[in-house]
């Protein structure tokens, strides 16, 4: 782009650019940035949703969150759910992509099938799997019984309920990691594979030394996107357990925001949890981006 072009275009197109960009910018300011700042402000208030009055309470909401045993459960749930979702869907997606990265009849059909759950409504998937995990006449308990195992009650035990929502989410999300890894595998330099084959490297060595390094950009991309997405899951949890059993058995931070704000109407406290979550995600993402940039330079 030449310098002259800059001069020629800048005057003529300022007005046009403003007209084209303004609607989108106004929407982002009013419905993304304004509520972001407003929520941070609200996190310092005691305010019941819909109430005309609110009172400034300083850091009280934060102190409450960081000291309550309820939030410890919520934090543990969030870490387990997010960690299992990230590791589970990435490991399974990679394994599947490696196995299907060869000329196999029917590969296209399998690829469509694995990816299909990703486009389904999370709420509908939640309702479907609630049915599938139903004690007694559900599909999963039945399959476990036919294997000679006695099925746990997925509705009544906190640990098993968390297992249930996590498995459901991985089922829904697996197609995404699989498709990204498959695309990365197929874009790699296959001449390196051949060199490794000639060197008679074992499959494991080839995977570790030749393929894995080439998948690095895809892995970092997935780490960031899958982490952000699974951290923010609401629909599957809401439709399957409403955050229960026992009040907070499957409540994650996102679900806690919903529950405190829109069920308990403690909007100030809800805003506090949202603010903590926002800064936690921001730090995690920035660290990942920093690691990615460093990895790229090396």
């Amino acid at each position: 782009m030449s310098k002259t072009r800059v001069g020629r275009w800048s005057g003529r197109h300022l007005l046009l650019a403003a007209v084209l960009l303004l609607p989108n910018l106004v929407l982002l300011v009013v419905f993304t940035y304004r509520p972001l700042l407003d929520s941070i402000r609200l996190s310092f208030f005691r305010w019941n949703l819909g109430s005309p009055t609110s009172s400034f309470v300083g850091w009280d909401n934060y102190v409450e969150w960081f000291t309550s045993s309820d939030s410890r459960t919520v934090l543990v749930n969030t870490v387990i759910f997010t960690g299992a979702a990230v590791l589970g869907s990435m490991a399974l997606g990679l394994g599947l992509a490696l196995l299907l990265d060869q000329k196999i009849r029917g590969r296209g059909v399998v690829r469509s099938l694995v990816f299909a759950p990703f486009v389904l409504s999370g709420a509908a998937v939640g309702v479907a799997f609630q049915f599938i995990f139903t004690p007694n006449f559900g599909l999963v308990p039945d399959l476990l019984r036919s294997l000679g195992l006695s099925p746990p009650n997925f509705y009544q035990s906190s640990a098993w309920a968390l297992f249930m929502v996590t498995v459901t989410y991985i089922w829904k999300n697996l197609g995404y990691t699989f498709v990204i890894y498959l695309a990365a595998l197929q874009a790699r330099r296959t001449d390196l594979d051949e060199a490794a084959e000639i060197d008679a490297a074992s499959p494991w060595t080839r995977l570790r030394k030749v393929i894995w390094p080439q998948l690095r950009p895809a892995t970092f991309f997935l780490l960031i996107t899958v982490l952000l997405n699974s951290f923010q899951v609401f629909d599957v949890i809401h439709t399957m357990t409403r955050g229960g059993p026992y009040g907070n058995g499957t409540t994650t931070m996102v679900y806690q925001i919903y529950q405190e704000t829109f069920v308990n109407l403690r909007a100030g406290y809800g805003a506090t949890v949202a603010t903590i979550m926002f800064f936690a995600l921001l730090v995690v993402t920035l660290v990942q981006v920093w690691l990615m940039e460093r990895g790229r330079r090396e």
């Binding site: 923010q232 704000t261 979550m277």
Partner: peptide, 19 residues
């Protein structure tokens, strides 16, 4: 400014947008 909006999780916007 537009790309940074991707970093704002929708959850933090619910409360204020609802109000």
């Amino acid at each position: 400014f537009i790309i940074a909006a991707l970093m704002v999780p929708s959850q933090i916007t619910w409360i204020s947008n609802y109000a």
